[in-house]
């Protein structure tokens, strides 16, 4: 399969690879996927006092499109409020990266990961209402 230039760019130079301290109350972790399915994504966000995402990190086990989707997502969420970040849809990611239909589920995984990370940080902050 041929990869789009954007997928290749994120794959060659992934942004924001790493991990944040999960014991920090301002850090939310979303871990989605399963090794048996061939993809596991860990996306972490750190929010400041105003509920704005000031940092994001990821690590992904999966295909190149999954790696690119999570890398792109970390770029997109930085500087956004939590509410704003929940609006990100897998379609936006797939469109931006030019993913073919068989790779759509990789972008779905990224959407699931950011949602899980947001839910996690909200829970930690005792603020579970949606």
């Amino acid at each position: 399969m041929a990869y789009s230039d954007k997928v290749l760019d994120h794959y060659e130079n992934p942004r924001n690879v790493g991990r944040l301290d999960d014991s920090d109350a301002n850090v939310g972790t979303g871990m989605v996927g399963a090794p048996a399915c061939g993809d596991v994504m860990r996306l972490q966000i750190k929010v400041d006092g105003d509920g704005v995402i000031e940092d994001a990190k990821f690590k992904t086990y999966g295909c190149g499109s999954a790696i690119a989707s999570s890398s792109l997502l970390t770029e997109w969420v930085k500087g956004r409020s939590l509410d704003d970040a929940t609006q990100i849809r897998n379609k936006d990611i797939a469109n931006e990266l030019g993913l073919p239909p068989v790779k759509i589920h990789c972008s779905v995984l990224a959407e699931d990961a950011i949602k899980a990370a947001i839910a996690d940080v909200r829970k930690k902050q005792g603020n579970t209402e949606e």
Partner: peptide, 24 residues
């Protein structure tokens, strides 16, 4: 492996078979 959360967990001594994965 630098990019792999599973590698991190393995290096931290996590038994991956014991983790509850959100299989899809």
């Amino acid at each position: 492996r630098e990019l792999s959360p599973l590698w991190d967990m393995y290096k931290d001594g996590v038994d991956l078979d014991q983790v509850q994965w959100a299989a899809h």
